[in-house]
């Protein structure tokens, strides 16, 4: 039992680091545009498909392929902001939500179409092989790199939001009109936020992609689904707290892994069951999030 639990926790932490990357992007966009970005995970899958094209199809060096993948994600983020979010800025939040879901579905459609000849693909890892085996759980170098990137990203974001441009972004998110008055371009801030969020999504995609084979919609509803866990992580952080989202990602990763315990008789979909009921409990009992002290108006 202890071993089993240990494996679940360790696996959960590493799965959770991907969710945390997705969640950070969701929080950034929620703070900037007030929308639940259903396309956040698709930034990842798009980045993954692009990186795959670079590394495997065009035989680019791995780092260049990754860079291409991230650039594709950022381009998609910017396009979403310009073509969907900006025209809908006066619409309700749920219309925006439907809009981002449309973006996700468009990306998935294009991925299905482009991967028609070879629907199931495999992205090579940055470094092959298993690094550690705590409790017998196989932790690959890829997992460790993902966790490392998450820590670096978190630190970088923390530093960035204390720098002048980071403060400007936060000011613009708080009060657009006031920010315009002191010379901050809300338009630029919005685009910048979406670019950063898409970059985070892209990182989640290119880093988690090699863990499994992938198909179209991999991070949205495929084997590496990170959209719902990412949202849950963001909700745990009250939708506005970045450290909360980070911690939330790890917690959600572990909770999901608990669904695979033999306690549930190896039923199928144990993880999804845990996620659904956990989300219900959190939203119904503590809608302001687990890791926030003050209630934040939704």
């Amino acid at each position: 039992m202890t071993t089993e639990l240990g494996i679940a926790v360790v696996n959960g932490i590493f799965a959770g680091s991907v969710y945390a990357l997705v969640a950070l992007g969701i929080v950034l966009i929620y703070r900037a545009s007030g929308v639940f970005n259903f396309a956040q995970a698709e930034f990842g899958t798009t980045g993954l498909f692009a990186a795959y094209a670079g590394v495997v199809l065009w035989n680019l060096p791995y780092w260049l392929g990754l860079l291409f993948g991230l650039a594709a994600a950022v381009a998609m983020g910017l396009a979403t902001e310009r073509l969907v979010i900006n025209p809908l800025r006066n619409s309700s939040r749920v219309t925006l939500l439907v809009g981002t879901a449309g973006v996700a579905l468009a990306a998935i459609g294009i991925q299905f179409w482009q991967s028609n000849e070879q629907p199931i693909r495999e992205m090579p890892k940055i470094v092959e092989g298993v690094a550690l085996q705590p409790f017998g759980a196989a932790i690959t170098w890829q997992h460790l790199i993902t966790l490392g990137v998450l820590i670096v990203v978190a630190l970088a974001l923390a530093v960035f939001f204390r720098s002048p441009s980071g403060v400007a972004i936060q000011a613009a998110q708080q009060d657009g009109t006031a920010a315009e008055l002191v010379g901050i371009s809300v338009r630029r801030v919005s685009m910048m936020t979406w670019a950063i969020a898409a970059l985070l999504g892209g990182l989640a995609g290119v880093l988690s992609g090699p863990n499994l084979t992938f198909t179209a919609g991999h991070l949205t509803f495929g084997a590496g689904a990170a959209l719902l866990p990412g949202f849950m992580a963001a909700v745990l952080g009250g939708m506005r707290s970045m450290p909360g989202a980070l911690l939330g990602g790890i917690v959600v990763g572990v909770i999901e892994q608990l669904g695979s315990l033999s306690l549930f008789g190896y039923m199928s979909g144990g993880g999804e069951m845990m996620l659904f009921f956990f989300l219900l409990i959190v939203l119904l009992l503590r809608p302001q999030g687990l890791f926030v002290r003050k209630a934040v108006a939704a």
């Binding site: 639940f36 719902l228 949202f231 909700v235 659904f276 219900l280």
Partner: peptide
């Protein structure tokens, strides 16, 4: 928005 998340989780 939060209910939309619940429906997403319920669907999965």
């Amino acid at each position: 928005l939060y209910f939309a998340l619940v429906t997403l989780a319920y669907g999965l």
